[in-house]
Design a protein around this nucleic acid. Sequence first.
DNA 1: AAATAGCACTCCCTGCGTGCGAGTGCTAGC
DNA 2: GCTAGCACTCGCACGCAGGGAGTGCTATTT
Lengths: 348, 348
Amino acid sequence: MRNAPLQERRNRQILADLVRTYIETGEPVSSRAISRRFEETLSTATIRNIMADLEDGGFLYQPHTSAGRVPTAAAYRFFAQEIASQATLSVEDREWIRREFAAAQSRAEITERAGHVLAEVSNGLGIVVSPPLGRTVLEHARLWLLPDGRVVVVLISPGGITRDKVLRPPRAFSQQELDATADFLNRRYSGWTLEAIRNDLLVKLATEREAYEGLLRSALALCDPVVLGEETTPLVHVEGTAQIASAPEFANQAQLRELLSAIEEKHRLVTVLNACIDAPEPVLVQIGVKEISQAGENLALISAPYTRGDGVQGSLGVLGPTRMHYERAINAVAYVAQIFSETLSKIS
Amino acid sequence: MRNAPLQERRNRQILADLVRTYIETGEPVSSRAISRRFEETLSTATIRNIMADLEDGGFLYQPHTSAGRVPTAAAYRFFAQEIASQATLSVEDREWIRREFAAAQSRAEITERAGHVLAEVSNGLGIVVSPPLGRTVLEHARLWLLPDGRVVVVLISPGGITRDKVLRPPRAFSQQELDATADFLNRRYSGWTLEAIRNDLLVKLATEREAYEGLLRSALALCDPVVLGEETTPLVHVEGTAQIASAPEFANQAQLRELLSAIEEKHRLVTVLNACIDAPEPVLVQIGVKEISQAGENLALISAPYTRGDGVQGSLGVLGPTRMHYERAINAVAYVAQIFSETLSKIS
DNA sequence: AAATAGCACTCCCTGCGTGCGAGTGCTAGC
DNA sequence: GCTAGCACTCGCACGCAGGGAGTGCTATTT
């Protein structure tokens, strides 16, 4: 049992070829198949020896004694690294993606487009994680009074994502008070994230007893419900459930069911997807995503962060069967992340 | 071949019992099974004769010669009618539903809750169709200028659903102009639906050449992009994909795939769901929904409209396998529609 | 020493025949 | 009009044999 069969260059190539053929055919790969790919410069017997080594190394396994070999998660990991360095996206794919984004106007639309493209390219799920409200930067706040005493709160961020809420405030406000509060927020907090604003308000209230305590209280009373409302958790957009349902690896109904319910619990997805934000590489490839579901072993997740201006906003990616077209998917994710970021900055 | 086997009361009861047992077991129902349900007051032979009649009438069919009978779409339709008149929801179910809604604050939340409840109760999909933007009633409009010339448009409706957009207007506006326009909208159109407003503006512009033509133009220029934006089509919320994936009738992967992609094309769903708005009965039961997909034959859709105040806003319902627990589902849909309407009116 | 040819062996898959059981349709009798 | 009885039809599970794909091992070649 040699422990590091990947030392040898030839072994690496054989492993890569094996993964590639398995991805194409979906069936255990025999020594003959590999030999053919090498134009028979190596006999099947030789290949068999190498395959045995690779199996010892944990890169392959046999479904049963007299079957071909199937790549393990480790093999996919190796393979993803191997191709990540070299491959580029085909011109057609690039153009297609560009076209898909061209018509999109609103943020909602480009999110949907992105999800669609990613699903299509991977035969899996296209996922886009929008940033949680707390990370949104405040550009401008506006408050006004409705005749019946309710208050309309509108928060505008640079992306043109506005959040608003009509709320019944804890005490009556006059329009003057509201104006003063809005003015205070705009003057002092324009450019801050909502999260930061909230924390600052709380700290200030606790520590300082100043002239503007009233303003602080008003600001908190009015902004808190907006920020704490519906969407404190990031919004997850998933496209392509139909695709993944038809993948042969999910012929097993129970597994499919588990996967689908995992998708419905979006917070789990978010954590795994957002891992790419802190990762060193531009595109993160995760093979075997157990966090998602038991069936996650057979899943691969390719994700990349997207930005708006300078800051990271969220992440997007592809969740599909481990047996997927990595070359295309990895590059597509990178490209979509880029175009997505660009388009996001463009629309006002 | 007798043409109307349902004339006879006994036949009706046998058919209903057969459907009921089939829903329970999921397997072709034999004459013996029915005989047992009748406490053997009728022999299997008699039952067999009746079943043959029912088959001629198009209510049953045999998967193969020596198998039991399976209900057809017609049988389900009959069954749904039969039970619709009598059944009521269990106390536990009522309480459970009420509890589910109790905590919901925002419209988004109650929509999600409703979807969840409906999915749970039917082992199928819970679907809620929100009204298209055009049907929203305008309560109040507000416009303001940002320092860089962009304009924030906020439309408030009685439900507290606000729509807003930051847009770069076709020409420069002053805050005075904006105020005048907003004032005009509020004075003239408060209480109208956005659709109606838009049409009226267009008509007025075409026919009248009046002093306030400028106002009309401004109003149109500013409101149109908001209304025409992202959500002109109704919003469809679907919950419970995981449930339906595990239904034995979708063991066939191809069918499941088709169904899932049908769900992704939401506009198709909307049409079928909204049929209940114009239907005479409070809850509409559709058996075999071919509009959705080929596999739709095995699908049943139970839907009901919901209101806010006086007007119908949208519809909600359940999409599941024909073999579903109708009693519970029909009543649940009715009840959820009611609670949904109430809760909708309550939240400001 | 590495690569290869050859061979025995393992295991899956398919097709075939068989028997069993559930369920029906029909007919004769109550 | 209902029922008992019987012959008949299928589907299904089982066992079995044959073929094929693929492997591991060993002896041989380079």
